[in-house]
Computed example of a mutant assay.
Amino acid sequence: MTAPAPGTDGPSARPHTAQHYSVAPPPTTPEGYVAPGMPGAPVTGYDPVAPRTTPRPRRTALAIALAVLATLLSGLAYGCAPLRAADSLGWLAIAQAGLIALPLGLLGGRNRALPLLAALLAPAALLIGQLTQHLRLAHAIGSTPHTLLHDTLTTWRTDLRPLDAAFYTIALVGGFLLTRRTANRG
């Protein structure tokens, strides 16, 4: 026996079953509604902090001036150290690079030229320090003022070792990387 189809002989006695739609039914809640307590629901009493509209001022000229001053001062400090400690001072190249990178990164911001400038100034500080050491050594052995520069350069060239190339590389890479890192923090 077959049950009559609804609407032909009257209502069917069977219970209602799930309806199948070929198109989704219209939503019963408004678009974008999120129930309270669910992820994405607006939080009451929360007032977001507005971002700064004015960026930090970049003081590139001041940063470069301070980096050149740090180059000269750290080079002279390196060169005026006691002569008996001259062999162990090469590792201070990273400290010189840090002193040069600090003003460039903090004051100069994310300028792309500043890490390259630090990569040049850090080995220059090491060179100034070594030349100052040899100038003191040439002066200590009694060079005349006319031959002092020649004697300094001669003793510097004869005293160069392969380890000095490593120190110059440490200063170069350290100046570049430390400037980039301090610029990204600020």
Rank of each mutant, 00 (worst) to 15 (best):
P36F: 05
P36R: 15
P36V: 14
G37E: 10
M38C: 10
G40D: 08
G40I: 12
A41I: 14
P42H: 10
V43P: 02
V43H: 09
Y46P: 03
D47E: 11
D47P: 00
P48Y: 10
V49E: 13
V49C: 01
V49W: 00
P51H: 11
R52Q: 13
P55E: 09
P55N: 07
P55I: 14
R56C: 02
P57R: 14
R59H: 14
T60N: 06
A61F: 06
L62C: 05
L62Q: 10
L62Y: 03
L62E: 14
A63N: 08
A63T: 09
A63C: 08
A63G: 06
A63H: 08
I64S: 05
I64A: 14
I64H: 08
A65Y: 06
A65S: 15
L66T: 10
L66K: 07
A67L: 01
A67C: 00
V68L: 15
L69I: 15
L69C: 06
A70L: 02
A70S: 12
T71M: 15
T71G: 07
L72H: 03
L72W: 06
L73G: 07
S74M: 13
S74K: 07
A77E: 07
G79L: 04
G79F: 03
G79S: 07
C80G: 04
C80N: 13
C80I: 02
P82I: 05
P82C: 05
P82T: 08
L83M: 08
L83H: 03
R84T: 09
A85Q: 14
A85S: 13
A85P: 04
A85C: 02
A85I: 07
A86Y: 02
D87S: 09
S88H: 04
L89T: 02
G90Y: 08
